Simulated assay, not measured.
Amino acid sequence: MATITFDTLKFSKRLKEAGILPAQAEAEAEALAEVLEVNMRELVTKDDLRHELELLRRDIDARFIQLEQRLVIKLGALMAVAVGAVAALVKLL
């Protein structure tokens, strides 16, 4: 999980210097720190993306293998029908 550093003391001092009451400045700093902490839990990391990408690659590979197998079966059936048709034509002629 990614982490960021948020200096609540520095933030509250900046608010106090801007004219915000000390109690309100400290409350805002704590609230912002809490929001950042909660949102960081939901942040997607590079490892999360790599994992999902690997899952997608495996799924695509499996689908291509299934598609290849279906095409081979259909091509085989088509060839069998063609050979049968040629054999029937040879008998007739």
Rank of each mutant, 00 (worst) to 15 (best):
M1I: 10
A2H: 07
A2P: 09
A2C: 02
I4V: 15
T5P: 01
T5Y: 03
F6G: 09
F6C: 07
D7S: 05
D7E: 08
T8K: 12
L9C: 03
L9Y: 05
K10P: 03
K10G: 05
K10N: 15
F11M: 00
S12Q: 13
K13R: 13
K13S: 11
L15F: 00
K16T: 04
K16P: 03
E17D: 12
E17C: 02
G19D: 10
G19E: 07
I20N: 03
P22T: 02
P22D: 08
Q24Y: 10
Q24M: 08
A25P: 00
E26L: 03
E26R: 07
E26Q: 06
E26C: 01
E26F: 02
A27L: 12
A27V: 09
A27Q: 11
E28V: 02
A29G: 10
A33I: 09
E34G: 14
V35N: 14
V35L: 15
L36T: 09
L36S: 14
L36G: 09
L36V: 14
E37V: 14
V38T: 15
N39W: 10
N39F: 11
N39K: 14
N39P: 04
M40L: 11
M40V: 06
M40C: 07
M40F: 14
E42W: 05
E42C: 05
E42Q: 07
V44P: 06
V44A: 14
T45D: 04
K46W: 03
K46V: 15
K46S: 15
D48Q: 11
D48V: 11
L49I: 08
H51R: 14
E52T: 12
E54H: 06
E54F: 04
L55W: 07
R58N: 13
D59A: 05
D59L: 11
D59V: 05
D59P: 04
I60L: 12
D61T: 11
D61R: 11
A62I: 05
A62M: 10
A62H: 04
R63P: 02
I65F: 09
Q66G: 04
Q66R: 13
L67R: 06
E68V: 02
E68P: 05
Q69H: 09
R70G: 03
R70L: 04
R70K: 05
L71T: 10
I73Y: 09
K74T: 08
G76M: 02
A77C: 06
A77K: 13
L78S: 14
L78I: 06
M79G: 01
M79S: 09
A80F: 00
A80P: 00
A80L: 00
V81R: 13
A82Q: 01
V83L: 01
A85P: 03
A85S: 04
A87V: 00
A87R: 00
A87I: 01
A88R: 08
L89K: 14
L89W: 12
V90S: 02
K91M: 08
L93P: 00
L93C: 00
